[in-house]
Design a protein around this nucleic acid. Structure first.
Length: 421
RNA sequence: GGAGAUGUCGCAUAGUUCGGCCUAGUGCACCACCCUGCUAAGGUGGAGAGGGGUUUACACUCCUCCGUGGGUUCAAAUCCCACCGUCUCCGCCA
């Protein structure tokens, strides 16, 4: 939910944002109209209600013999009040529906356009060159006994897999390295629920256009989360936070579930795009004025992880039309995947400003003692998908894979993954 | 899954019997000031959340909120229905 005051006082800013996203700017005018209808209806209802309340007090204290006549009068008033209340709550719901469909107001500098209109922030590292034909991660995974796709499909269907042997160990090593990084930066570790209630899912903005991407358990009315961001954002819902000591930073580890309904035929090979994977996610609650600095900070942590994995990558500023509704800006880091000859997303970091917090009712106390929504940000610190880039980047001609130095300590000193017999 | 208990503005509670001076009282904690004078106490006042009106702002004023959503009624914390959470016991259980 965007700031209704901004909608009233600076509708042009919201219009520009909608245009950059390629969404309907006319929604802004609809929202403003609905807002004024809502307020008129509220005022009408509240005036009648005040009258009714006053009358009620008269009835309560009236002598018995006058009560009967007074009650008859009050009955007429009550039906008017009821009607006005209905109109008011309808108008309120209508405003919420329209205003809720407006995306977050993007931050200046975010490129306009869609999926391909991102702008490059920087490229880091040199893309690996091989004097042999590199194998893709699926082949390497099989060769090393690290990834068992066939049995994953047998047990659970397409886009499922087993991590096995050094593959399983590599994932745990990566997660542990990421956790240590997070701890060093002051994040509080959390292992989060992966099943959440509808209001939490809706509050984080995932039940909008992408609802078909989400697993749902109708028998229990619960959703399986595609990222621990959902639980991490819901963690402080309906709370007033004390941020006087600085931001609240959490590192949430969870398994993530995605239906991948809209990606049939894409990335069918290997574990690039799967229904289930693990992720360590950073999540920050900060004062609104600190949000942009925090975004840079999360990005820096991510880059240091990529560097520790000795990967070559680029940082991109995602275009407005490719942002989720909650994000005001999103930076992705994409690592070079040799056999694809392309950069592929390994991390994503969003600044949701106050949009998500407003919907989840997460506030802080301003200096004047009033409450105001906080800003929320999230970013990937490690996921299963990183194995793709790590295996492919560090492979050798014989199919072995050199373990990045920083990860060796998490693998009992193992320096090389070797093909199994 | 079964039985029972329970949910009140930070925490703890009063209020629910029998609907109406509940505009939800009190204690603790909190904030400001005063007094005292030394590691503690006393006094006065303030102070919940969301929204509307009016405001540069302060202030003022109105509406809503007693787990959630409905219902009955002129009037609901209080009565009725459904749901949710928590606790206790029983059952079941990777």
């Amino acid at each position: 939910m965007i700031d209704p005051t901004l909608l009233r006082e600076n509708p042009d800013a919201v219009r520009r944002s909608q245009q950059s996203r390629g969404s309907a700017a006319s929604l802004v005018d609809d929202a403003i109209a609905a807002d004024s209808v809502k307020r008129a209806a509220m005022q009408h209802f509240e005036r009648l209600r005040a009258e009714q309340n006053a009358f009620g007090r008269t009835v309560a204290t009236a002598p018995r013999e006058e009560k009967r006549a007074l009650v008859l009068q009050a009955q007429a008033l009550a039906s008017q009040v009821k009607e006005a209340q209905q109109k008011s709550s309808d108008a309120e719901a209508e405003f919420a529906r329209i205003a809720g469909s407006l995306g977050n107001v993007i931050i200046d500098g975010v490129p306009a356009g869609g999926e391909d209109d991102w702008s490059l922030i920087r490229e880091v590292g040199t893309t690996p060159a091989f004097d042999f034909e590199p194998r893709d991660h699926a082949d390497l995974g099989e060769l090393l006994g690290a990834i068992d796709i066939a049995r994953g499909v047998k047990v659970s269907g397409s886009r499922f897999y087993f991590l096995k042997g050094v593959g399983a160990r590599l994932e745990l090593a990566l997660m542990n390295m990421a956790l240590d990084k997070a701890l060093a930066e002051g994040f509080i570790p959390l292992i989060t629920p992966t099943l959440v209630r509808p209001e939490i899912m809706a509050g984080t903005g995932f039940l909008g256009e992408h609802a078909d991407e989400i697993y749902y358990l109708p028998a229990d009315d619960l959703y399986l989360t595609g990222t621990s961001e959902v639980a991490l954002a819901g963690y402080h819902s309906d709370e007033i936070l004390d941020l006087s000591g600085g931001p609240l930073r959490y590192a949430g580890w969870s398994t993530c579930y995605r239906r991948e309904a809209g990606s049939a035929g894409r990335d069918n090979r290997g574990i690039l795009r799967v229904h289930q994977f693990n992720k360590l996610e950073m999540f920050s609650y900060v004062l609104p004025d600190d949000a942009q600095a925090e975004h840079e900070r999360l990005l820096a942590y991510q880059e240091s992880m990529l560097a520790a994995c000795e990967l070559s990558y680029r940082v991109i500023d995602i275009a407005a039309g490719d942002l989720g509704s909650s994000a005001a800006r999103k930076f992705d880091i994409e690592a070079w995947v040799p056999t694809q000859g392309a950069y592929r997303e390994l991390t994503s970091s969003s600044n949701c400003t106050t949009y998500q917090a407003r919907r989840l009712d997460i506030r802080y106390r301003t200096e004047s003692g009033k409450t105001a929504p906080v800003a929320t940000l999230n970013g990937t610190l490690a996921t299963t998908r990183w194995l793709v880039a790590i295996l492919e980047t560090h492979q050798q001609a014989d199919g072995s894979v050199v373990v990045p130095t920083a990860l060796r300590g998490y693998l009992g000193g193992l320096e090389l993954f070797e093909p199994i017999a």
